[in-house]
Design a protein around this nucleic acid. Structure first.
Lengths: 208, 208
DNA sequence: CGAGTTATGGATTGATCATTCTATATATTA
DNA sequence: TAATATATAGAATGATCAATCCATAACTCG
C-alpha cells in the first residue's frame, strides 16, 4: 500500500492477468518484455521494473494467479465429499472444459508454457514440473482413498491407475491446442472411466 | 554431390542428427544457432549457411529425420497385417517405450519442440501440427478398419475412440518428460485397451 | 510551501539473436 | 599451371533481448 509518492498509473492486478494470458498463449521464453509491457497497458520499462523484480518474478505471479483461477479445476481431485471415482471423473471433465474454452488460450498453462526452454532457464521448467507434481499427488491420494474406502480392491495397481488418468489429463493440453472439441473429449472420458469400473469389479488377487 | 571446390569439412548427415537432438531437447526457438553450430562440429556461421538455407530449413530437415527414425513407431497404426486393436496397442506401447528411452531426449519431438512460440513463427507450430494430424489420420483409419472388418460394431463412436487413444498418446510426451517410467505407462496401456474390448462387446445400438 | 517519496518517459546498457560479408584456403577440371 | 568452384575463418550486420539509468512529474506529509 503506497502511502506517498506518485501513485501507479496502471492497475497492477489487471496487468498480471494480462501477462498471464500472454505467457499462457506463447510460453515463458517466447513472450518478450516489450510484448508484456504492451498488454499491461503500454507501460514503460521503468514502470515495469518499479512494480516487478524481473520477467521471471512476473511469471511466478502469473503462474500463481493461474493456479488460483483457471487451474482450480483440478481441486476436484481433492474433494473428499465425492466418491473417488466422481472426483477423478469431474476433475477430468472440468479440465477438458476449461482448456477448450475460447475466452482464453487453449490448453493448460502449467503443461505448455515452459515445456521447453534454454538450459540457463531450467529452473522455470522445474517450477512448473513441481506444480504438475502437486496435481499428481492429489490424483494419487484420490485413488488411495478409493482403495481405503472400498471403492477399489486392495490389489489395485495404484501407480498404473494414476498414470492412466494423469497421462490422459496431460494429453488434454495438446488436444485442446489442436482444436479437438470438448464434446469429443468428454465422451472419451466417459469411456476412460469404465476402466475404473473394471478395476472396481476385479476380485482381490495376490499382489506381486 | 559436390564435384569441384573445397569439400565440406564436417559430416552433413551427422550434423543434422546432432541438430535434431538439440531441437528435440530444447525446442525450436530456445535452440540458438551458436548452440547448433557447436554440436554440429564447431562449424562457423559461414559453413552453416553454405550447407543450410536457414535455421528453419535445418529444423525442417531435423523433423523429417525424426519422422523417419524415432518417429516411425507410429507406423504400427498403419500396419494392416495386424488387427486394428493390436495396431493401436502396439503403436501406443512402442511410442511409450521410445519416448522414455534415455539414449535421446524424452518425449516426442513433434509434440514438444514447438508447442509454444512467438507469433512471427506461427508457421513452425503449424508444421508440427500438420505432422500430428497425419498420425491422427492413421489412428482414425485404423479404427475405421476395425469397424469395417467387424472388430468393432457399426455403432462405434469413432471420434470418441480416436480422441481417447490420441489424447493418451499425446499425454505420453508430457509424462515421459516428467520421468514417469515406461513400465507404468505400459501397464496403463493394458488397462486402456480394455475400453476397446468393451466397445467390441457392446451390442449394436441406434446411432444418434 | 518544502521535504520526502514514488512512478514515469525516454534514452541506454551490454548481451545475444539470426544472418551476411570479405578474404582466403583448398579442392577439381582443363 | 590456370581457371573455376566451393568451403572456410572471422569480423560485422542490424535487430531484439532483459534490464538499468537519469531527469522529471506527481503525489503525501509536515
Amino acid at each position: 500500500m503506497p502511502r506517498t509518492g506518485l501513485p501507479r498509473a496502471f492497475n497492477r492486478d489487471e496487468a498480471v492477468t494480462a501477462a498471464m494470458n500472454l505467457f499462457w498463449e506463447h510460453g515463458f521464453e517466447s513472450t518478450s518484455l516489450s510484448q508484456l509491457r504492451a498488454v499491461m497497458g503500454n507501460i514503460s520499462a521503468a514502470s515495469f521494473y518499479a512494480a516487478f523484480d524481473s520477467k521471471e518474478a512476473l511469471f511466478r505471479e502469473a503462474v500463481e494467479r493461474y493456479i488460483y483461477t483457471y487451474g482450480d479445476v483440478t481441486d476436484r481431485f481433492r474433494d473428499t465429499s465425492l466418491t473417488s471415482k466422481a472426483a477423478i471423473e469431474q476433475g477430468l471433465r472440468q479440465s477438458a472444459r476449461m482448456q477448450t474454452e475460447n475466452s482464453h488460450p487453449l490448453g493448460c498453462l502449467l503443461v505448455l508454457s515452459a515445456v521447453k526452454c534454454s538450459p540457463e532457464q531450467h529452473h522455470i521448467q522445474e517450477l512448473l514440473a513441481k506444480e504438475r507434481e502437486r496435481v499428481r499427488g492429489w490424483l494419487k491420494s484420490c485413488i488411495e482413498r478409493g482403495v481405503a474406502n472400498g471403492e477399489l480392491p486392495d490389489s489395485t495397481d495404484i501407480p498404473m491407475l494414476l498414470t492412466l488418468f494423469e497421462t490422459f489429463l496431460r494429453g488434454i493440453s495438446i488436444q485442446a491446442r489442436d482444436h479437438v472439441p470438448y464434446e469429443t473429449m468428454d465422451a472419451a472420458i466417459t469411456q476412460l472411466m469404465r476402466v475404473w469400473d473394471l478395476s472396481a469389479k476385479t476380485t482381490t488377487q495376490v499382489g506381486g
